[in-house]
Write a protein that binds this DNA or RNA. Structure first.
Ligand SMILES: [Mn+2]
Ligand SMILES: [Mn+2]
Length: 338
DNA sequence: GTACTCT
DNA sequence: AGAGTACAACGCCTT
DNA sequence: AAGGCG
């Protein structure tokens, strides 16, 4: 065996069954082993579809492409008009990886991009992933996990959601389950706010509050910080807002730092670079008490069965957007009650 | 993973 | 044609 | 200005 990388050992269905991989040429220059896949009205070139991206579970780059093709219609609405950051693993999850904000040089002109100001006055030319073809295109570049802004192109300074990121100290989901309960009960029972939950596909959960995009990031983050600090003060044994790892002392970290300009969150239904290819999965609160629940419960193999059984828990998220002002009022009222 | 340069 | 190299994020907080 | 952090 002298191959440059590992390929799937047993025969797997080719992409878009019936379309053979082939050595293809363009004029004089040969461009390697390519296959093709259809997305919308486009025919996309996929290199190395049999390259193994997940060594233990044997999942190939081609299988990621298939996943994003099949899940695309579910994912795209959550990515629409949001600047994209790619997390690329060109040689699979054990190889080098990097975040990439700027669109790569030489991409076709049907890929939507947008020059976006950064905080220091420079600009970043972000891909805007508004269709399945783009999602598959970036997968071919080795993107496993698309990350998206919390704001949209029409008002990049104003987020349309708050993300409270629950980062447990270890792999035990029990800490996450009880933290979600504490937070969920505060936000729903006490503050009467709509709350949406997502298993990250890694270790934790994102608690998401949908916002009308009327306030800038700093104001929104301040409110999120107050919520997190309030919770940590009331449950000092279980929760912390300490950024310093050494000060967390085994407690679950309530991270609100993602609520900032040009910061990102993992897109719903995006794939994680973890064996078995778990996906970020929106869930309903009641599901968290399932015995089998954990942050990696859903993956590229089993998520479609779930989709057939459970309506997308975030389907209505936009209809529930509320104003920061209302939330602040409710929170102040709660704090002033003893 | 791709673009580009050097042999 | 083939080999090798360069390149691919950033905001906020703390010290 | 640099480092930690996600
Ligand atoms: Mn997290
Ligand atoms: Mn490479």
């Amino acid at each position: 065996m002298d191959l440059r990388w590992k390929t799937a050992s047993s025969p797997l269905p080719r992409l878009a069954a019936g379309q053979e991989s082939q050595k293809c040429s363009q004029g004089e220059s040969e461009v390697g082993i390519m296959s093709f896949i259809k997305a919308g009205n486009r025919k996309l070139e996929i290199s190395n579809e049999d390259k193994v991206f997940y060594p233990d579970s044997g999942i190939t780059k081609g299988e990621l492409v298939e996943y994003y093709k099949r899940a695309g219609d579910m994912i795209i609405p959550y990515m629409k008009d949001r600047p994209l950051t790619m997390r690329r693993f060109p040689d699979g999850i054990e190889g080098n990886s990097f975040y990439q904000k700027n669109a790569p040089k030489g991409i076709p002109d049907w890929i939507k991009t947008e020059a976006v100001k950064n905080r220091e006055g420079g600009t970043t030319n972000h891909i805007i992933c508004n269709d399945v073809a783009t999602l598959i295109f970036i997968t071919n570049y080795g993107n496993i996990t698309p990350h998206i802004w919390l704001s949209k192109l029409d008002d990049l300074d104003k987020p349309d959601k708050i993300i409270i990121d629950l980062d447990p100290p270890g792999d035990d989901f029990k800490a996450v389950r009880s933290a979600v309960k504490l937070i969920y009960e505060l936000l729903t029972d006490e503050l009467d706010l709509p709350v949406f939950l997502m298993l990250t596909g890694s270790k934790g959960v994102h608690v998401v509050l949908p916002l009308r995009p009327k306030n800038k990031f700093d104001e929104v983050r301040d409110f999120a910080s107050e919520l997190a600090d309030f919770l940590a003060q009331n449950h000092p044994r279980e929760l912390t807002t300490e950024v310093r790892k050494s000060k967390r002392e085994g407690r679950l970290f309530l991270d609100v730092a993602r609520n900032a300009y040009a910061q990102t969150g993992v897109a719903p239904y995006s794939v994680r670079a973890i064996e078995n290819a778990p996906v970020a999965a929106p869930v309903n609160y009641g599901e968290l008490s399932d015995k089998s629940m954990n942050a990696q419960k859903y993956n590229i193999k089993n998520i479609f069965k779930r989709m057939g059984q459970v309506k997308d828990p975030w389907k209505e998220i936009n209809r529930h957007r509320f104003s920061l002002g209302r939330a602040r009022e409710k929170f102040e009222r709660l704090k002033s009650k003893v």
